[in-house]
């Protein structure tokens, strides 16, 4: 382990200040489940970390207003188990509950979660494997390699790494926003604008400035939240990243007509992937096996398969179909 400086902030102000003063490469430390892991793999090498896990104003969860307001420092487990989140946004709760393991969820924060990095084996496997994300310009080992888990959407000639998280996918489906603060900035960005596709700079994964901290996540309340689910398909029942996943939400009006629909895909793209055309295909329709399947097909229309991941197109279509069928039972309840 390389030596690094450690500062524990008590207030948000202290954290912002310490981050700005820390110099280039200084990183925020929340639960540490991603950051320490990547430091051990020598992928992240911050000279200093600013621990925000004791900043109590970051951990608040407020469900009283027109938005769910979730502090970036809230633990995944606490948000997953929150009764209002479970009732009004089963998709959000499930996306957390189906991620990682209970031990990790007890440590990890919902803010840190958004900034987790790809699980690409070549990225994590060390310097022997060329990887543009880890070492810009070195090449991409995955493109002609074992790409069973790699992206079907949003890849480039430089990188096809999947964004692995679940929570951001569910947030994306429900138009979440982030309040962000830096030494001179205080801004709100749409979650949709947080993650970026790799393009020719796969090392750049999001639009936060190095000195900005995510303070809270806000999710507008909508009836589609109640009629929602997060369905995650993986190589085993638990404790694995998604092969495919879908966050969906529906509101169904009189005579079973779909009024609102939300569909975002996880595990299949270089960033959380919303599919407006698939959402649109359902509006004004009844939800049947056929319309659900069609929405899945629309969602995966532009998918680009590599060598070993083609099966995830059909699997993804079925995942969307199944998720919509689950959401229907909740939406019409």
């Amino acid at each position: 382990m390389r030596p690094f400086a450690y500062t524990a902030a008590r207030t948000l102000g202290q954290a912002v200040e310490a981050l700005a003063d820390g110099g280039p490469g200084t990183k925020v430390l929340a639960g540490g489940t991603t950051l320490y892991d990547l430091m051990k793999l020598r992928i992240e090498n911050p000279p200093a970390v600013i621990d925000i896990s004791r900043v109590s104003e970051l951990t608040r969860i407020d469900t009283s207003g027109a938005e769910l307001v979730i502090g970036a420092g809230a633990r995944m487990a606490d948000v997953a188990e929150h009764p209002v989140v479970r009732r009004d946004y089963p998709a959000l709760s499930e996306s957390l509950w189906r991620a990682a393991s209970q031990q990790l969820r007890n440590m990890a924060t919902v803010g840190g979660n958004l900034l987790q990095r790809t699980r690409c084996s070549y990225f994590r496997g060390g310097s022997a494997f060329p990887c543009n994300k880890r070492e810009p310009g070195s090449g991409c080992s995955a493109i002609d390699g074992i790409d069973r888990h790699h992206a079907l959407f949003g890849g480039s000639q430089s990188c096809i790494a999947t964004y692995p998280g679940d929570w951001a996918v569910a947030l994306l489906a429900f138009d979440a926003k982030l309040d962000v603060v830096g030494p001179k900035t205080r801004r709100t960005i749409a979650l949709a604008d947080l993650h970026v596709e790799p393009g020719s700079t796969p090392q750049r994964e999001h639009t936060l400035a190095a000195d900005e901290i995510i303070v809270r996540i806000r999710v507008p309340k909508t009836a589609a939240g109640r009629g929602s689910t997060y369905l995650k398909i993986r190589d085993r029942e638990s404790y694995a990243f998604a092969l495919t996943s879908a966050a969906v939400g529906l509101t169904i009006g009189r005579r079973g007509v779909i009024e609102q629909s939300r569909i975002a895909l996880g595990g299949v793209a270089t960033r959380p992937w919303r599919v407006p055309a698939a959402e649109q295909s359902l509006i004004g329709e009844q939800l049947t096996e056929a319309t659900a399947r069609r929405a899945g097909e629309v969602a995966f229309a532009g998918a680009k398969a590599g060598h070993h991941n083609g099966f995830r197109i059909e699997l993804g279509i079925r995942t969307v179909t199944e998720a919509l069928m689950i959401a229907r039972t909740r939406a019409t309840r």
């Binding site: 699980r119 084996s121 070549y122 994590r124 496997g125 022997a128 494997f129 080992s141 002609d144 390699g145 074992i146 190589d235 085993r236 029942e237 638990s238 404790y239 694995a240």
Partner: peptide, 28 residues
């Protein structure tokens, strides 16, 4: 679940972690 992956361009085993080499969990 279990299967070691080999990338013939690099040799050795690519799936050299408990993440990439999937074992069952209790829920399985």
């Amino acid at each position: 679940r279990e299967g070691g992956e080999v990338d013939p361009r690099f040799g050795g085993f690519l799936s050299a972690s408990l993440e990439d080499y999937a074992l069952p969990v209790n829920a399985d």
